[in-house]
Nucleic acid binder design. Structure first.
Length: 480
RNA sequence: GGCGACAUGGCCAAGUGGUAAGGCAGGGGUCUGCAAAACCCUUAUCCCCGGUUCGAAUCCGGGUGUCGCCUCCA
């Protein structure tokens, strides 16, 4: 089935047809590593990780590129304030970001280009723009001549006449028009910079993305992502630069933007000071629950951050994992019985599969896909958890295996990795594992002679240590 | 002021014309020594007003509200 994508450029759903059959090129605007990343930065990262997994699952060869803007005003200022060299600051926050991504189960991009690594290419592109009369030099700066690019405004839907009155930026006399933007900025004394035909300077913000896309993915790519706040001016300018340089149109076939993450109804942003740091969130919460929380809202809907929502996601994630474990335990126990009519499970599996893939095909609607996963979990639990009065079914093992297979497939696409429960011997020392077994044994002996005081004492004390005991008809389960 | 997105139960959130998914929370039940987990049952007519249609949460028009962009920002 075809994948439908909502394209910012056309403001419509379009059938996804890659530029080159079987291949998908994706570029996502990454972070400026001048400070800790916040939870909002994780939204597009997780979203694109899922898109990538999904398209790969569908058989596409996907190449994903995400940049780091490691030279800009904020970094320069931070360096001035702290006395720490820019590369050191950038490196620190890039590493922290990547560590958070690892925890969230975000697979590494194929390339993480940095602005500072493509200076020669940027200079080339700027020179090309000057040669083509799309740009001009002015006192060591180089500006893009917005009015010269016929399609300017097509992505954001802005009309140049309408922008004029709203332009509240102090208009630089160096620019021919307030709409023009810097491709290259001359360095002030003491500021870092690179030699160029226009003197020592550094790239403007928008140009790096155009150049990186071209370098790593070519003049035309399938999908470009980022937060909605980047549509204008960043992406608009990117289109102008890229198409003016290469002459290839469209630069990006599908513009796929992520809505913002708000805190108490306001955009989370460092400049507003209302940020929740990502490294703290993934430290204080199960990163997989954080991932679930992010995926439970469609990318084009504003998502609010709150501890309550995170707790809700944690509960939901527990539920999925319980179903996963139940199926796993059933399948690994050859004598497990107590099933209901297994044909119902087969039907539920079929429906979940349909719902999951239909949702994903519909603009990567992860909330709907998650609903299918929850339905599947309910169906699995209903058939796998032993009950006295139920009868076994000879097809059961097969059916449960199918359902479990689908669950694994779906979770794989969503990048949700369940804990398999009790740590294995390699993770936990044999001794402590044995000690737990002994305690469980003692407790069960106590239960048998109805010494519930002792049994409950052991259970409570172990719970305090994070070891959960659950008595089931098939024995006591241990979870850590 | 201009441009754009969104508005569904207590909270979160699906739904791109055919009669309201799912999660969390709540209530009732089953199971259990108790608990946990699990299962079953249970809580909405979709911001307002018009219109199109046999039929609209879904399309069109007009309101109202929230958020974003027009300045660095995922």
């Amino acid at each position: 089935m075809a994948v439908m994508v909502y394209n910012t450029l056309s403001r419509q759903y379009e059938e996804f047809v890659p530029v080159e059959e079987g291949k998908v090129s994706i570029y996502v605007c990454g972070i400026t590593p001048y400070d800790h990343s916040h939870i909002g930065h994780a939204r597009p990262a997780v979203f694109w990780d899922v898109v990538r997994r999904y398209l790969t699952h569908k058989g596409y060869k996907v190449k994903l590129v995400a940049n780091f803007t490691d030279i800009d005003d904020k970094l320069i200022n931070r360096s001035k304030q702290t006395g720490i060299p820019i590369p050191e600051i950038a490196e620190k926050y890039i590493q922290e970001y990547l560590e958070c991504m690892d925890k969230l189960g975000v697979q590494r991009a194929d390339v993480y280009p940095r602005a500072s690594e493509v200076i020669p290419e940027i200079i080339d592109a700027v020179q090309t723009l000057i040669d083509k009369d799309f740009a001009y030099e002015s006192s060591g700066d180089v500006y893009f001549r917005a009015g010269k690019f016929a399609g300017y405004g097509k992505l954001s839907g802005k009309k140049t006449e309408e922008l004029m009155p709203g332009a509240r930026v102090e208009v630089s006399e160096l620019k021919e028009s307030p709409l023009d933007w810097a491709l290259w900025k001359a360095s002030s004394p003491g500021e870092p910079g690179w030699p160029s035909p226009w003197g020592k300077g550094r790239p403007g913000w928008h140009i790096e993305c155009s150049v990186m896309v071209h370098k790593h993915l070519g003049p035309q790519i399938d999908m470009h992502g980022g937060g909605t706040e980047l549509v204008f001016p960043h992406h608009e300018n990117e289109v102008a630069q890229a198409e003016a340089v290469s002459g290839v149109e469209p630069y990006v076939k599908y513009w796929v933007h992520s809505e913002l993450l708000n805190l108490e109804g306001e955009k989370m942003s460092k400049s507003l000071g209302n940020v929740v740091y990502l490294h703290e969130v993934v430290k204080n919460h199960d990163p997989m629950a954080v991932r679930l929380y992010l995926l439970n809202a469609h990318r084009r809907k504003v998502l609010d951050f709150s501890e309550e929502l995170l707790r809700s996601a944690e509960k939901g994630w527990e539920r999925i994992q319980t179903g996963y474990r139940n199926a796993l335990e059933f399948l690994s126990n050859p004598t497990a019985q107590g099933l209901r009519d297994a044909s119902k499970l087969a039907e539920a599996t079929r429906q979940s599969r349909k719902a999951f893939f239909e949702s994903m095909d519909n603009d990567f609607a992860t909330p709907g896909a998650l609903a299918a996963v929850f339905d599947l979990v309910t169906a699995i639990n209903a058939h796998v958890v032993p009950r006295e009065k139920d009868t076994s079914d000879s097809d059961a093992r097969q059916r449960v295996a199918e359902a479990f297979g689908l669950l694994v497939e779906c979770l794989g696409i969503l990048g949700l990795v369940p804990e398999t429960g009790r740590p294995t011997a390699s993770q936990e020392s044999d001794i402590s594992g044995s000690l737990v077994d002994i305690l469980v044994e003692i407790r069960n002996t106590a239960r048998q002679r109805k010494d519930y005081a002792t049994a409950d004492y052991i259970r409570n004390k172990m719970a305090d240590l994070g070891i959960v005991l659950e008595d089931t008809p098939s024995g006591t389960k241990v979870r850590m």
